[in-house]
């Protein structure tokens, strides 16, 4: 497998009325061909902002202030808006949480797919575009493509709309599909259908997927690798099995523990106390120190380094340092 995307020490700042929010504080990760990477984290952890900077879709008050985003060697963080327009939709596509708002309500389904082709595939004729759109509609599991082609978004259910959004995103065979909470707005039975569809499509068209979610069940279902974000930093990343079964970071452990287990029904849930840090004024040490059950003096003073604790298992925690061994046990 070869490396498709490499994000190095990415830093993003967002200017607000009250000051500068350090939304992403030096994160590094990569994506290989045909793999699925899940990015997990709470609201405000910087996961959406990170992928939006890959897409060049940061809000006007947001800015990449450091690091690089390499797509097959080309640094996207240096691209102009015009250059990004050639990348978006053709090399990298994105699907959003709410299928109701990402489709244009005044345009037929077919036209919305054709629109993308018009932009990126100038070599295609009108008939070819229509054929391709019909092909995509059936590819995402919608029956009667001919009828659906002329329908409007309001005539479809939520699950169907999300399928259309996926069809639009896949129109130009992107190398990377970024899905930002693609199933959060959907019911569980529909969620299962969409996850199956995404896995199935990945096999068929060999795209790589970055999925952002807060649902660890969804992660277990679809991901090959997982990156956990907290307070604008990447606190742990590993192969999916390793992350669930050999968890290293206390935050990841806390997340996994806060899910109710069948074994002790009705008992007290292991909650993570407190609230996430304010990224306007991030703590100088470990961002999780204030909520961690194993905080040491050093955690509040110095940010932990990225440590390797397995073949491709990284975690940022002082407990992993040699000198903390005694404390760890």
């Amino acid at each position: 497998m070869s490396r498709l995307l490499e994000v190095n020490q990415l830093q993003v700042h967002i200017k607000t009325q009250h000051g500068i929010v350090q939304a992403v504080r030096g994160i590094s990760f990569y994506l290989d061909e045909q793999e699925t990477l899940a990015i997990v984290g709470e609201s405000g952890s910087g996961k959406s902002i990170s992928v939006k900077s890959i897409m060049g879709l940061l809000p006007k008050n947001g800015k990449i202030v450091g690091g690089s985003i390499l797509l097959e060697g080309k640094d996207l963080s240096k691209y102009s808006e015009r250059q990004m327009q050639t990348i978006r939709g053709s090399d990298i596509s994105m699907i959003f949480q709410d299928p109701m708002t990402s489709l244009n309500p005044t345009m037929t389904i077919g036209k919305q797919i054709v629109e993308v082709l018009k932009e990126h595939r100038k070599d295609m004729t009108k008939t070819q575009m229509k054929d391709r759109a019909l092909e995509l509609i059936s590819l995402v599991g919608i029956s009667n493509p001919e009828t659906r082609f002329d329908q409007y978004p309001h005539q479809l259910s939520g699950g169907m709309r999300q399928r259309v959004v996926i069809a639009v995103a896949l129109a130009c065979d992107p190398k990377i599909l970024i899905a930002d909470e693609p199933t959060t707005a959907l019911d569980v039975t529909i969620q299962a259908q969409i996850l199956d569809l995404m896995k199935d499509l990945q096999k068929k068209i060999k795209t790589s997927i970055i999925i952002i979610t807060h649902n660890l069940g969804v992660v277990a279902n679809i991901a090959d690798r997982v990156a956990v974000m907290y307070g604008g930093q990447l606190v742990e990343s590993a192969d999916v099995r390793e992350l669930f079964y050999q968890t290293e970071h206390p935050y990841t452990k806390g997340l996994l523990a806060s899910i109710p287990k069948a074994s002790h029904k009705g008992g007290e849930l292991t909650a993570i106390h407190g609230t996430p840090p304010d990224l306007m004024d991030p703590p100088k040490g470990c961002p999780f120190a204030a909520r961690c059950t194993k905080t040491m003096e050093v955690c509040r003073q110095y940010p932990p380094e990225d440590m390797l604790c397995g073949e491709s298992h990284h975690a940022r925690c002082w407990l992993l340092d040699e000198r903390a061994k005694a404390f760890r046990e």
């Binding site: 969620q191 279902n221 669930f244 899910i259």
Partner: peptide, 27 residues
């Protein structure tokens, strides 16, 4: 039965090996 089988379980081994009752269509 379908509703329970659709909930993704936060355990990769269990999740990747279990079979689902897939409901066709939507409400």
């Amino acid at each position: 039965q379908a509703l329970l089988s659709a909930i993704p379980i936060p355990d990769p081994d269990v999740e990747k090996s279990r079979s689902r009752i897939m409901l066709e269509g939507s409400l």
